[in-house]
């Protein structure tokens, strides 16, 4: 198997300063020595509480944040310094209603992002029709996004994340704001991506979802890896994934 994501001893600090005359700086370590690899075609899960470092790790992987130290490589390239080689081959979906132009229709949003990803116009338009069908936004495609419900905006985000047919899709809590039907649709999309040989790195709070979808996963706690392995290995003897997760977090906290 070919590793497409390589993270080794990765650290990320956020430094904030306050005060005009007596300037005080505060450093918060969001990711603290995280290491893992993801193979091509895998669905890899990152689980953890709020503030565990999942989003920061994803932002470093999608070239949006510079690591403070450590190795952070995607498709064999450093995410800080070799981002030009990585960006056309990946995409990302963040949970929530952000990340789309509200005063444009879904179709115009997708056309624009298609252009930003350098998708040739004919292929872009064909792909837009296909993706709109996939996320069930076909009928609302020409309505302004500001008239959409929360779930529809989230589905538009998913569509945007697929516009360049990426080799790796990074999903940060993608089911946030989705109703059960929408969440089911997303799980189907993730399976289809796996069948098409794509790699998916997924963060979620919904443990049954992670157990159902992921080939392997890591559990993050306060920026560090608390456990890693297949869902079966992590669950161990516990009855549910939730029991295993709570036990792990308590053990680490103690």
């Amino acid at each position: 198997m070919e590793p497409v994501i390589e993270v080794r001893d990765l650290r990320r600090d956020y430094v904030t300063s306050k005060g005009l005359l007596r300037r005080k700086t505060q450093t918060v370590r969001a990711v603290d020595g995280v290491s893992f690899t993801v193979e091509r075609g895998e669905i890899f899960g990152m689980l953890g509480q709020n503030g565990a470092g999942k989003t920061t790790t994803i932002k470093m992987l999608i070239t949006l944040l510079a690591p403070t130290s450590g190795v952070c490589r995607v498709l064999g390239c450093d995410t800080f310094g070799q981002e030009k080689q990585i960006r056309p081959r990946i995409n990302f979906i963040f949970g929530g209603e952000m990340g789309v132009y509200r005063r444009l229709s879904a179709r115009d949003n997708l056309k624009y992002f298609g252009n930003l990803y350098g998708v040739p116009p004919r292929l872009r338009d064909e792909r837009i029709e296909e993706i709109l069908r996939l996320v069930d936004l076909e009928e609302a495609a020409d309505r302004l996004a500001e008239t959409y419900s929360k779930g529809m905006l989230q589905r538009l985000q998913i569509a945007r994340g697929l516009i360049n047919d990426p080799e790796i899709v990074f999903m940060d809590e993608p089911t946030v704001g989705l109703d059960p039907l929408g969440a089911h649709m997303l799980r189907d999309i993730i399976r289809r991506l796996r069948d098409a040989g794509k790699t998916v790195l997924l963060t979620t709070h919904y443990l049954p979802e992670a157990e159902e979808l992921c080939d392997r996963m890591v559990i993050l706690n306060r920026g560090k890896i608390a456990a890693s392995g297949t869902p079966a290995q992590i669950r161990g003897a516990e009855e549910t994934m939730e029991d295993a997760y709570l036990r792990l977090i308590r053990e680490v906290e103690v």
């Binding site: 949006l64 990340g99 350098g118």
Partner: peptide, 18 residues
């Protein structure tokens, strides 16, 4: 505030062109 600024910095198109 719309969360699109960060996207513009993470796409293949040069942000300067945007």
């Amino acid at each position: 505030y719309m969360g699109t600024l960060s996207l513009l910095f993470a796409v293949p198109a040069p942000v300067e062109t945007v």
